[in-house]
Amino acid sequence: MSVDALFQPLKVGTLDLPNRVIMAPLTRARATEQHVPTPVQLVYYAQRADAGLIVSEATAVHPMGMGWYRAPGIWNAEMVAGWRAVTEAVHAAGGRIYAQLWHMGRLVLPDYIGGQLPIGPSPIAGEGETFAPRPEGDTSHFLPMKPYVVPREMTQADIEGVVAAYGMGARNAMAAGFDGVEIHGANGYIIDQFLQSKTNRRTDAYGGSIANRVRLLGEIIEAVAGEVEPGRIGLRVSPTSERKGMGDDNPAALTEAIGALAQDHGLAYIHLIEPIASGFMEKPDYPVMDHLRAVFAGTIIQNGSFDAETAASTIASGKADAISFGRPYIANPDLVSRLRHGYPLAQADFDYAYVGEDKGYTDYPRHTAE
C-alpha cells in the first residue's frame, strides 16, 4: 500500500511540519553526571533533523524529579546553555524540536536526591526497579539496578513547587531555543501518578474523582501556558498503560477528561501512547483513541509499534494526524528516508542504549543503496 499519507505536511499548533514522522522522546543518558547536555547530543539530534518534529528526551524540571543516570535537566543556566547548542544544531540542519518537560515523582531513587525520599501523590511504591547511579570507582559497563521505594506523600507546598518547576522549565526551554514544549504526563511519572486511580489514593482536592485527579495537570498546563503560547504546547499521556504499577479504573473516562482539559487550553497536540501491538508496552484491551478524538480537536500523535504502512493507514483513516517512532530512531538516524523508500531498518545495540558516549548513539550509519 501507499505510505504517502505519512509524508504530507501538517500544521501542529503554530508550527508547520514537512512530514508526519515524529521522533518520540528517547532518554539516552548522554548528559553529564550533573545532567548538563553534552556536544555528542547535538550531533545525535542534528542527525535526525528531517523528522517532522523531534521531541527531546525526557528533561527534568527540578532536582527532586531527576532519577535517571546522566539524563538531562533544564533547571539551571548551564543546562539551558547546553540545550541551546542542541537546538541551534537542529535548526541549522533544517529541523524542529520540542523539549519534553519531566518530573519522575515516586520513581526517583533516594540515591539521586541526597538520601531523601522521593515525592508522589500517595505512599505507594512503583513496581520493579531502575538504574541507580554508578558508584565511585565503578568501571563496569552496565549500571546497577535498585527497586523503587515508597515515596513521601506530597503536601500542598510540594504540589505548588512541582507546578512552579514546570513553569520555570517551560521558560528555560524557550530561552534554550526550543520551538515548543511537551508536558510529560505519561509512563508512570508524576503527572500520570496523579491521573491514574491505582496510584492516587488522596482524599483532598487532588484525589478521588477524575475531576480531582486531573487538577494537577490543569495547574501545570496553566503554569506552562504562562511561559509558552498554547499553540506550542503538547501533552503526552498513556492512560491505558499499567507499567511500573500503574492502572486506572476507567481509562476511557480519564482520557476524555484529559482531552477536554487540553481542548479548553488550546494545546497544539496530544501525544497518545497506545500501541497497536504488544512490545515495549502492552496493546490495550480497550483502546481510548476514539474517546480522545471525541473531545479534542487539535493534532493527535499516536505512538506504539507502528511501521510505515500501519502509520500511513492510521493517518489516512483519520484515527491520528501523525505517528511517533521511538526505538526505530535509535539505530536509524535517516528513519524518514527509510520509511519513505521501504529501506530495511537497522537494529539497535541495546547494550549501549543507556551507557556510553558515541558508540550506540551517533555511530549508526545512514542507509546506502547497493
Rank of each mutant, 00 (worst) to 15 (best):
G356S: 05
Q100R: 00
A92F: 08
E222G: 13
A262E: 06
H367A: 02
Q156M: 13
Y148L: 10
P144L: 14
D290K: 14
K319T: 00
A164G: 10
V162A: 10
E309N: 02
I54R: 09
K244A: 12
G65T: 06
D351K: 12
M79Y: 09
G279S: 14
Q41Y: 09
T155G: 06
T27G: 13
T310D: 04
A316C: 01
V224Y: 02
V181S: 11
F280M: 14
I54N: 14
E357C: 07
G82C: 11
L235D: 06
E219M: 14
P151M: 04
T310E: 02
R338E: 08
D290Q: 14
F350K: 10
A346S: 14
L10R: 00
L217K: 07
K146M: 13
D351T: 12
S278L: 09
I273A: 15
A257Y: 04
Y45E: 07
I97P: 08
P147T: 04
T199W: 10
E160K: 15
K319G: 00
E274G: 03
D264Y: 03
L235I: 07
Y343N: 12
Q100L: 00
V288K: 06
G279I: 03
I97Y: 10
S305F: 05
T240R: 10
D111E: 15
R215E: 09
L53D: 05
R201M: 06
G82P: 11
T199R: 14
A322W: 00
D138Q: 07
G231K: 03
Q347H: 13
V295P: 02
A312L: 00
Y352H: 14
P135A: 05
